[in-house]
Computed example of a mutant assay.
Amino acid sequence: MTSIITNASAISALSTLRSISSSMESTQAHISSGLKVGSAKDNAAYWSIATTMKSDDKALSAVQDALGLAAAKTDTAYNGLDTTIDIVSTIKAKLTTAREPGADKDKINKEITELKNQIISTAQSSSFSGENWLYNTSSTAPTTKTMVGSFTRSSTGSVSVGTISYDTSNSVLIDTNDATRGALTKAVTGYGTYTNGTAGSTGTYFLINASSTTSAAGSVVSISSTTTDAQVEQMLSAVDTMLKGLTDAASTLGAANNRIDTQNSFVKDLRDTITKGVGRLVDADMNEESTKLKALQTQQQLGIQALSIANSSADSVLSLFR
């Protein structure tokens, strides 16, 4: 039936054209933004997951920055400690030389004094961001430092921040307030000549005199022409004990540093994985979208032609009355 009141063909063609135009708008939005899920109305589930993961990625970025700061602190302390170990090893060698008959102990002592000054300078310089884990001037004892190491989200959705801890009391070399808290300012027992496995004599020594408020017992490692061979051996034994302590401290600090580096690499990889995962959920496939846009443009042109044909049907009705 042909009606001049209701043009069913035109209505159908117009509805199709509206649908095509709507699809074109959506496709063009995907192409311009690069996202197939740009808002919750596109896909509520994927949008919610992507938004949460993007938020977590920002938190992980902050964790990565914190790990960088932690790595800088541990690197600074480790480098200072490693340098100190080399210097103390040199002092140990100087004391060994002083044990030789006819050695000029006064000149050797001058060298040892300069080496000790270098240790003080190294410890004072091993500071980063206002923190020095080798040189303590505070009246309070060195504490355990906590550094942000991770950000996690549980299966229930709750979040938590993980930390990496290091006890700085293990690495303090010099303490100007309490000498007993510094590895090189506290008293260490040194043993003299061993006979059949038994120490012949003992003495108590410390390497650095920092003029601490609470001083250490014993004597500072220092030699002169009047220093006996037994005393030199005692100092040598005490310095060797100190060196072992420094080596243990460096091992502990190195392990913490290695953990920070490992965690930093993991966080980088995790952020990359999250970015790729979010992309799979919300990114538009540009090849697919461009193909779809070309097809919709063709459909739009055909829809316009169909609407034009449907609208011309009224002209054929007029011809019946001529």
Rank of each mutant, 00 (worst) to 15 (best):
L253T: 04
S319T: 10
K294E: 12
T140L: 00
D229N: 15
S225F: 01
K292G: 09
S89E: 09
A306P: 02
L17K: 05
A238I: 06
S19C: 03
A71T: 12
Y78F: 12
I108H: 03
T298S: 12
S15I: 02
A93K: 13
A217N: 01
L173H: 06
D248G: 13
Y194G: 08
A13T: 02
F206V: 00
K54E: 15
V278C: 15
L69N: 14
S155V: 05
V188H: 05
V267K: 12
T193D: 12
E114N: 14
T152I: 09
I5L: 09
D283P: 00
E288F: 13
N132F: 06
Q297V: 00
S251P: 04
T226S: 15
L270P: 00
I108Q: 01
D42R: 06
T83R: 13
S21K: 05
L173Q: 07
D315C: 00
S89W: 07
I260V: 15
D75H: 13
G190Y: 04
K107Y: 03
A40M: 11
T27E: 02
I5D: 09
T97F: 05
T140Q: 06
D261K: 15
W47R: 11
W133V: 03
L270R: 12
L281D: 13
L69T: 10
N170M: 12
K107S: 14
A71D: 15
S201P: 10
T97R: 05
V188K: 04
N311W: 04
R271G: 09
N170A: 11
L302M: 07
F151V: 13
A72W: 02
S32P: 05
K186W: 02
I20P: 00
T16Y: 05
V37F: 04
T189D: 07
S39P: 02
S61A: 15
A50W: 01
M53L: 14
V220G: 05
L81T: 06
S225A: 13
I119R: 09
V267T: 14
L236K: 14
L296Q: 05
I208R: 01
S154F: 07
Y205I: 03
T137K: 08
A314L: 12
K116Q: 10
D315P: 02
D104S: 01
Q118K: 15
T176S: 11
R322C: 01
V317T: 06
T262M: 10
V88R: 03
A249D: 07
I11L: 07
I112Q: 08
A77Y: 04
S308R: 04
F206W: 01
K110L: 07
T185A: 07
